[in-house]
């Protein structure tokens, strides 16, 4: 069936009778072969315009993915406690290009990073996705704070706490359905504070240099 229109069948059928699985004679005989665009003079049907912002997002996401993979090689004393170096990239993008691009970079990093590490759709993937979504939500608010007062370190610390909070809730609901998980809150919170400050300082340093 070639009825791949997104509209309901009735409307589509009225306007394009030829799309309802019955090939119309003129299309098969005279028109350009299927697969090419209807009005295209040899061009591909899908023409994606690549904006400078797209290239930027791709470059930043690539850097973030490299950091993710590098970090996966660092042994961690406790699952969930890791520096989160890739977030430095998110912080820089947020500061320079706004929340939308930061969200893109983070989303691509979580997706591609998990694919490369072999964690896609595994618990680790859902954990980093939850953490990423929650910290992005917090960053969406935090980056509206006056910049003279609140720098990348503030963003970083707030996002780190949001990250670990989201993950803890997911772990409690899904992976370890026992309140014993919350005994580890002080360790996770301490790690979030420490790495939040360190990552924020690195991001601030990098932002200052350029």
């Amino acid at each position: 069936m070639t009825a791949s229109t997104t509209e309901p069948g009735a409307a589509a059928g009225r306007e394009h009778p030829s799309r309802r699985g019955i090939p119309s004679p003129p299309l098969g005989d005279i028109s350009p072969p299927p697969g090419r665009g209807a009005g295209g003079g040899g061009d591909s049907a899908i023409d994606l315009e690549v904006t400078p912002a797209d290239r930027r997002v791709a470059r930043y996401a690539a850097a973030a993915i490299v950091l993710t993979i590098a970090e996966a090689a660092i042994p961690s004393p406790l699952p969930g406690v890791k520096p989160g170096l890739a977030n430095i990239v998110t912080l820089i993008v947020l500061w320079r290009h706004g929340w939308r691009e930061a969200a893109w970079v983070t989303g691509l990093r979580v997706l591609a990073g998990s694919l490369l590490v072999g964690q896609f759709l595994a618990p680790g993937f859902w954990l980093s996705l939850t953490g990423a979504l929650l910290s992005l939500a917090v960053l969406g608010v935090a980056h509206r704070l006056p910049r003279g007062l609140f720098g990348p370190v503030s963003h970083s610390v707030l996002a780190a706490f949001a990250h670990i909070a989201g993950q803890l809730v997911l772990v409690r609901l899904w992976l370890v359905p026992h309140d014993g998980v919350f005994h580890l809150v002080p360790i996770f919170a301490g790690a979030a504070l420490l790495f939040g400050i360190v990552n924020g300082l690195i991001a601030a340093k990098l932002l200052e240099e350029k």
Binding site: G151, P152, V157, A204
Partner: peptide, 9 residues
């Protein structure tokens, strides 16, 4: 690199 609000946070 730290701003006043950063200390607060």
């Amino acid at each position: 690199l730290l701003r006043p609000g950063d200390w607060l946070v």
